[in-house]
Design a protein around this nucleic acid. Structure first.
Lengths: 243, 243
DNA sequence: GTCTATATAATGATAGAC
DNA sequence: GTCTATCATTATATAGAC
């Protein structure tokens, strides 16, 4: 009873069920997951009872929204990849998408999901990490990106910091207590992206730490740990809290 | 009626008011701000009525918690600075603090506040940006850190990404539906810190982008924008969504 | 200061008419 | 499929006894 729709065609998708789901995505983006079923029903022009009738429960509605948002994310990603280089880093992709009126609610919902945690958040984080890894791999092959001692760990680190920074910075702009927060959020995201572009490029191009002995010291300590761990494999893995 | 206590001595701070406030900090860290006044009262060994009596409302209680958490943050920061180099980057400071049993609830509450947004979140972000700027400035003076074209913007960028990455990654570990989530959270934070140390040091020491023309192109475009903005100062600042 | 009892409002979910 | 009416629960906050 749950998944048979949703993956169906997009044509006859303007029925009440889809209207409720779309209204929920918009309202969650604006006010968070605490928004009431009644408010969603009102925004969709129906009744609270119908919402439950279609989705079983509020959790069921959320699951349907998660699924739809993930679908739109993939769609937006494809668009961005074809359009230009907007799909490379988290903030540039998100800023690009948020400006497309159709994709803006998806971006807002996604940020709410990241702030709250849950399956959708985990899935998007994994997607970003993987996509970053592939992009960096291509960059290394073409000589634009420096090779890494551990490409997977580097990509994961960069993806999480990029996504997290955007979440932290854009989180306040989500709250639309004001009248019409329609294009304002997209604008704020673009402003953020333009704010960090130059410092990020500077750090990534010129580096930040001048003294290479820091890195060398940690590399040596890491190798040392690996060796001792190979000796007594069973012992509780205590990487320790250093520095 | 509100602030006269709280900054008072720590000795006679074990009355019911302080007990309620401390219980609230712990429970908010574990379950978020949606936790009920009743649950807080029960954890403090008192009644819901007394909570309202002391703090006026749930919002009043949160304000008191915010204030106390900020006080503990400053305290932990001072400790960390004196102890060693644990105060330098967000994750290392947080990981260090979360392992101190006394400071762990403060760190969890802080992450909840960052995820939710609000005055405390803004204040902590500003503090981190400023502290990062000062640390980097000292590093530049001693030759360990590379100088920047825009030190303030670079510090802000690094602070937000570091804090945001930690928030994104540690957010799921906060939920303590399980039995006793006491030391587990601190351990998870330490694990995260050790996960990102090597990739971060690699990127910061060796850089990420091999081709310097990327950065150069954006620098040129930025200068161009500055010039046109100097011509017509009034025009709506359209930095534009590039890339 | 602290408690119990209660007022009041809002929530998610159900039942049944149409 | 859709609605209205309602239930049961839970929430914050109040009132007043002690």
């Amino acid at each position: 009873m749950r998944l048979e729709n949703g993956r169906a065609g997009r044509a006859e998708d303007l029925n009440a069920r889809a209207r409720i789901r779309d209204a929920a995505i918009v309202l969650v983006g604006r006010h968070g997951f605490g928004v009431s079923v009644r408010a969603i029903a009102e925004a969709a022009g129906t009744s609270a009872g119908l919402v439950i009738h279609h989705f079983g429960s509020k959790a069921g509605l959320r699951a349907a929204c998660d699924e739809e948002v993930l679908r739109r994310y993939r769609e937006a990603k494809t668009d961005a990849m074809q359009t230009g280089a907007s799909g490379t880093f988290a903030h540039s992709f998100m800023a690009h998408s948020a400006q497309v009126r159709e994709h803006a609610p998806m971006v807002a919902y996604l940020l709410r999901a990241l702030a709250e945690g849950g399956p959708l958040a985990e899935e998007v984080i994994e997607k970003f990490a993987l996509e970053t890894e592939q992009i960096l791999e291509a960059g290394v092959a073409s000589g634009q990106i420096r090779p890494s001692r551990d490409p997977k760990a580097r990509a994961r680190y960069l993806a999480i910091e990029s996504l997290g920074g955007m979440l932290l910075r854009m989180r306040p702009a989500l709250d639309a207590d004001g009248d019409l927060g329609d294009g304002r959020f997209g604008d704020a995201l673009v402003r953020y992206a333009s704010e960090i572009t130059l410092p990020a490029l500077e750090v990534f191009t010129e580096g930040l730490i001048a003294d290479p002995s820091f890195y060398a010291a940690f590399l040596a300590k890491d190798k040392e740990n690996e060796d001792t761990e190979n000796e007594d494999t069973e012992k509780e893995a205590g990487h320790g809290a250093r520095g």
